[in-house]
Design a protein around this nucleic acid. Structure first.
Lengths: 163, 163
DNA sequence: GACCTGAGTTGAAGAACTAAACTCATAAAG
DNA sequence: CTTTATGAGTTTAGTTCTTCAACTCAGGTC
């Protein structure tokens, strides 16, 4: 019996992982979301090897996740910092999802070390309550369980035959 | 000036990535969520090297993400299959978040190849509408933008000094 | 007994990661 | 004007991880 499945290689998850799936990449993005901007900050916060940090930053810049911006502190020469683009900041839900999963299943006995809260950068409306990632469909059904969703072919789907 | 920051190493994201951050791990989980169970299925769907698949499955089983279960097809000897535990199924939001990010920024020109829809396994209420990952706080404010949330120390937080 | 199949294991070559030492441009101190 | 300091990388050597292909192993079929 032959069945037709969505080609697992032509998939946005695989493409996403080819950009942010290397070791350290998501941790660099996490630190950037937490305010790190300079080479030395990423290096000392993460303990990543310097050469690897350099190539990761380059990869992330090339992929459009980060941007290399010149800065100059008073009495110092011009240097470069790295900041997230909109594309990079859009990884926040992915990182919150990973954080939540780690908190739930691999937590420190004392509880989570980080809680994500509803607190904007500017002082717009907020409540400081913990934030969770939830699955919600376009019809407004929220808090879907993982079993309540399934993958279906989209407009760019390709198929493969399989036994 | 000395500031105190949450220790970036004592973090659930780092712990989560130590389990599912290796190359292929999340793709294996994705295929399992899509119904793959047997060694050969993972191998042919993903094109991963056999020995690496074997060690990845072992790692995922050891970490509690998957379970090794015996099965026997009629007229064949007993073999082993791999299925997700509850802990593994809980990675669905992470994968949906990655999928969404990939769709938005790295999409195939023809559009996404996979759309996640609200359609449960059993025939409970559902609407077949596309599913998205959203950030929602405990007070019920949904659809938070990435800028509307921030990391705060939790009960298990440790701190590091930094200049 | 010979052959087939799914599920791995082994081994060699190549790519990626780590750690530590080194370079480079500029600024400030002497 | 020479020396020293600093942040931001680069180089190099050693280790670990991935890949690919060939091989093994335990049944079941012919």
């Amino acid at each position: 019996m032959e069945t037709r499945r969505i080609d697992p290689v032509n998939c946005s998850v695989a493409r996403a992982l080819s950009v942010v799936g290397e070791r350290w990449s998501l941790l660099i993005v996490r630190e950037a979301l937490d305010g790190a901007r300079r080479f030395g900050e990423f290096h000392s916060r993460l303990g990543i090897a310097r050469n690897l940090l350099a190539t990761r930053l380059e990869t992330l810049v090339t992929a459009g996740v980060m941007r290399r911006v010149p800065y100059q502190e008073p009495g110092d020469r011009q240097r470069f910092a790295y900041e997230l683009t909109e594309q990079g900041r859009a990884l926040r839900p992915t990182l919150v999802a990973l954080l939540e999963w780690g908190d739930t299943y691999l937590a420190d006995p004392q509880g989570p070390s980080v809680v994500v809260r509803h607190r904007p950068v500017d002082d717009a409306i907020s409540c400081d309550e913990p934030v969770k990632v939830i699955l919600e469909c376009a019809a407004g059904h929220g808090h879907l369980a993982p079993e309540d969703v399934c993958r279906t072919p989209g407009p760019g789907a390709r198929f493969v035959e399989s036994s």
